[in-house]
Simulated scan of single mutants.
Amino acid sequence: MPLYDYQCPACDKRFELLVRSTTIPACPQCGSTAVAKCVSAPQAPGRSAAIIQSGRQRAAAEGHFSNYSKAERSKLSRS
């Protein structure tokens, strides 16, 4: 499932969302489904253990899967 950035014109909230091909994205703030897909810049991977750990902690707080190892992600994607 790809991660996309969206902008809601109704409440002007910008958010990220993991979407499947059958998923209709909706704004988490107002619930509107009239959202616009935004272009997001990719981020280079961190090179030091401290940068990687801080990124994983941030991702865990935001609910992203990047805080899991590859083995853990493969188990999650099967369920």
Score class of each variant (00 low, 15 high):
residue 18 L to Q: 09
residue 66 S to G: 13
residue 13 K to N: 14
residue 29 Q to V: 14
residue 65 F to P: 00
residue 61 A to T: 12
residue 69 S to W: 05
residue 70 K to E: 14
residue 36 A to D: 15
residue 32 S to F: 04
residue 74 S to F: 09
residue 74 S to A: 13
residue 30 C to H: 07
residue 7 Q to G: 11
residue 5 D to V: 05
residue 46 G to M: 06
residue 63 G to L: 06
residue 6 Y to C: 03
residue 16 E to M: 11
residue 27 C to Q: 03
residue 38 C to K: 10
residue 78 R to E: 13
residue 7 Q to T: 13
residue 78 R to D: 09
residue 14 R to E: 11
residue 59 A to Y: 06
residue 1 M to P: 08
residue 44 A to L: 13
residue 68 Y to W: 07
residue 20 R to Q: 10
residue 10 A to W: 00
residue 78 R to L: 12
residue 68 Y to S: 01
residue 61 A to Y: 01
residue 35 V to H: 04
residue 35 V to A: 02
residue 54 S to A: 15
residue 59 A to L: 04
residue 24 I to K: 13
residue 62 E to S: 12
residue 65 F to W: 11
residue 44 A to V: 10
residue 19 V to I: 14
residue 6 Y to H: 03
residue 67 N to A: 14
residue 43 Q to P: 01
residue 45 P to T: 08
residue 20 R to D: 12
residue 75 K to D: 06
residue 67 N to E: 10
residue 48 S to R: 07
residue 12 D to A: 15
residue 3 L to I: 10
residue 24 I to F: 04
residue 53 Q to K: 12
residue 24 I to W: 01
residue 38 C to H: 03
residue 70 K to M: 09
residue 20 R to K: 10
residue 2 P to V: 05
residue 76 L to K: 11
residue 21 S to M: 03
residue 23 T to D: 14
residue 50 A to C: 00
residue 45 P to K: 11
residue 32 S to D: 05
residue 59 A to I: 01
residue 73 R to M: 09
residue 14 R to H: 07
residue 10 A to D: 15
residue 68 Y to F: 14
residue 60 A to N: 08
residue 76 L to Q: 08
residue 74 S to Q: 15
residue 27 C to R: 03
residue 59 A to E: 05
residue 19 V to P: 00
residue 52 I to P: 00
residue 3 L to Y: 06
residue 12 D to V: 04
residue 60 A to Q: 13
residue 51 I to N: 01
residue 60 A to G: 09
residue 51 I to E: 15
residue 1 M to S: 14
residue 3 L to T: 05
residue 36 A to E: 15
residue 7 Q to Y: 12
residue 35 V to P: 03
residue 31 G to W: 10
residue 48 S to H: 09
residue 41 A to K: 13
residue 29 Q to L: 06
residue 56 R to W: 06
residue 20 R to N: 12
residue 75 K to R: 15
residue 38 C to G: 01
residue 28 P to C: 02
residue 51 I to T: 13
residue 34 A to F: 05
residue 73 R to L: 08
residue 44 A to F: 02
residue 45 P to Y: 08
residue 52 I to D: 03
residue 16 E to T: 08
residue 11 C to K: 03
residue 70 K to D: 15
residue 29 Q to D: 13
residue 79 S to G: 06
residue 64 H to F: 15
residue 21 S to N: 10
residue 53 Q to R: 12
residue 25 P to R: 05
residue 27 C to L: 04
residue 3 L to E: 07
residue 37 K to Y: 03
residue 1 M to I: 07
residue 25 P to W: 05
residue 21 S to A: 12
residue 55 G to R: 14
residue 68 Y to I: 00
residue 60 A to D: 10
residue 9 P to C: 01
residue 41 A to R: 13
residue 79 S to K: 11
residue 2 P to Q: 06
residue 18 L to M: 08
residue 73 R to Q: 11
residue 8 C to Y: 03
residue 16 E to R: 15
residue 17 L to R: 09
residue 47 R to L: 12
residue 12 D to I: 00
residue 19 V to R: 09
residue 4 Y to V: 01
residue 28 P to Q: 02
residue 34 A to N: 14
residue 57 Q to G: 08
residue 40 S to P: 04
